[in-house]
Amino acid sequence: MNALADYPSPTLEVPTFPSAKLAMWLFLATEVMLFSGLLAGCYVLKAGATGGNPNLWPTREQTHIQPWLGTLNTILLVVSSLCLSFALNALKSGNIKGTMGGFGLGFVLGSAFLGIKAWEYRDKFHHGLIPGSIAEAINNNQTHDSKRMQMLSSGQRVWLDLQRGQLEKYVHDHPNQQGPDMVAAKAFLASLRDGKKANGDYIRPLSPVEAAQEANRILEKYPDLPVYPALPNGNLWASFYFTLTGIHATHLFAGLILIAICLIRAISGGLPPENLDFAENTALYWHFVDLVWLFLFPLIYLI
């Protein structure tokens, strides 16, 4: 294992903890610091932004978070961890088939997790939940101390452009529809435009803040209209969501590669005993990633 291996003296201290495992634990310690830094930062920001007021945080409906997907993902990860434990046990008892099965199932479940995550991302993008261009629902309790923010900012401009585009497409695609939702959509569209009427009169367009409130009002009545909601602290929420899950997914991806290597080794003639370290470390890492998810899941899906 190290320089001590060839030294015969039994009276001197010999480390019993394998280096590879020690290093993996140390690495996990750094990972703990990484995620605790991230989570602490996020908690601080959330606390600062909402001041403990849950109304200042987007609801699950607004963000299209589906807890059952998160729960499913949690189950997938927990089961995959169990699979890896099973594979390790099988490996220790020389059961190569069991090993392959355990790693294989773990790999599949992990990939399924990533697949669901990717689908969720796509869903978020589809609903216009992209950090930096979400309109904020201005709450009266919220501090907006810069007067100049009453002016159209670049993020708001993007959001308004998206609203207009979506609504125009909707109106264009449903030429025969006459229902109240279409009336609302057209009215909203008109109030977004800088308003020069045909007779030359000028009508003030909704200010971005008003447009945001109007969007939420319409969505409450007609949830099917392609209008992007204005979320309280929506940009911060999106930043959290994508950063936390993104970094976690990156770790998961690395774990998948490790599992794949274990799997390939198991298939190509079994894992020799000296590679037990590798398999154990893989499992250790995977359990850690699993553990991180157990922190993220309630933070993102439940609270």
Binding site: M151, K196, Y202, R204, S207
Partner: peptide, 22 residues
């Protein structure tokens, strides 16, 4: 504004009183 007969229509450039100026 642009309503009155002798209005200058400043608001057509200072849209939304300048908040949405192009």
């Amino acid at each position: 504004s642009s309503q009155a007969p002798d209005a200058l229509g400043c608001v057509s450039c200072h849209i939304d009183y300048g908040r949405q100026s192009p």
